[in-house]
């Protein structure tokens, strides 16, 4: 689970920003309308480089969050484009589900995650210190990776209680070792290794953390 830079000041969706700021400044409940869904989703994909915020599985083509698609602070979908705005396999997750009720569109609480994971995660809340956009968050601090089983584990330097709570997150909330994800990650890493061995071209566009921990470039 890589660190994500969600710089609020750099948002291209300025219309959304004005809209949500208005509610925040007046301490008013956010409406549930989906007017800015695409603005927020695509902006999140920009920050997340098109991968699931937790599992780092590739879920959105770059063409969908290209900065050229924002016009006058609004995300514009092009119906004639090769990729349509719905052609991604992510869903919006509220990191702290309790904030959903009043601050549904709060930027800092939102991440795009794999729809497969969202469907089984329900409203389980990840540990607050594992929030990937926290300033002091780094994956090394909390996780390690076993290249043989291709599983993430809690950092073995942590005390047992912390390791147990992180392990619970890995297995039941973040699903970092979900069978499908783990299999995809294993295949992706092995494929890159093969390409390096064969001196073929390769592109790392997903599973950034595990790849960087398994391969010396």
């Amino acid at each position: 689970m890589r660190k994500i830079d969600k710089n609020y000041d750099a948002l291209l969706s300025t219309q959304y920003k004005t809209w949500v700021n208005n509610y925040e400044s007046k301490n008013k409940k956010h409406p549930e309308s989906r007017t800015y869904y695409d603005d927020v989703a695509m902006e999140l994909y920009r920050c997340q480089l098109g991968v699931c915020a937790y599992t780092e599985r590739w879920i959105c083509p770059q063409e969908l969050y290209d900065s050229a698609l924002w016009v006058d602070g609004k995300y514009i979908s092009d119906d004639s484009a090769e990729y349509q705005r719905v052609e991604h396999s992510g869903e919006m997750d509220h990191y702290d589900p309790h904030l959903k009720k009043n601050q549904y569109w709060l930027w800092s609480n939102l991440f795009m995650i794999d729809a497969k994971i969202n469907s089984i995660k329900n409203n389980n809340q990840p540990l607050s210190y594992l929030k990937p956009d926290l300033e002091d968050y780094t994956p090394e601090k909390y996780f390690e990776y076993d290249e043989n089983t291709h599983r993430f584990i809690p950092n073995t330097d942590k005390d047992e209680t912390t390791r147990n709570e992180i392990q619970y997150m890995i297995d039941n909330v973040l699903f970092l070792n979900h069978g499908v994800i783990r299999g995809d990650r294993r295949d992706f890493i092995n494929d890159i290794k093969l390409k390096i061995r064969n001196k073929s071209k390769y592109k790392v566009d997903r599973f950034f953390t595990a790849v960087s921990w398994c391969i010396d470039f």
């Binding site: 497969k116 089984i120 390690e144 990776y145 076993d146 290249e147 043989n148 089983t149 599983r151 584990i153 073995t156 392990q167 297995d171 699903f175 070792n177 979900h178 069978g179 499908v180 299999g183 995809d184």
Partner: peptide, 26 residues
């Protein structure tokens, strides 16, 4: 796993043992 989206490749006990194995490897 890939087509039918099964989360684990076996029982919960197997998952615990795999986590244990991964920890020893690391």
């Amino acid at each position: 796993q890939k087509v039918f989206d099964l989360q684990d490749d076996g029982s919960l006990l197997r998952r615990e043992k795999l986590n244990e194995l991964a920890t020893y490897n690391v």
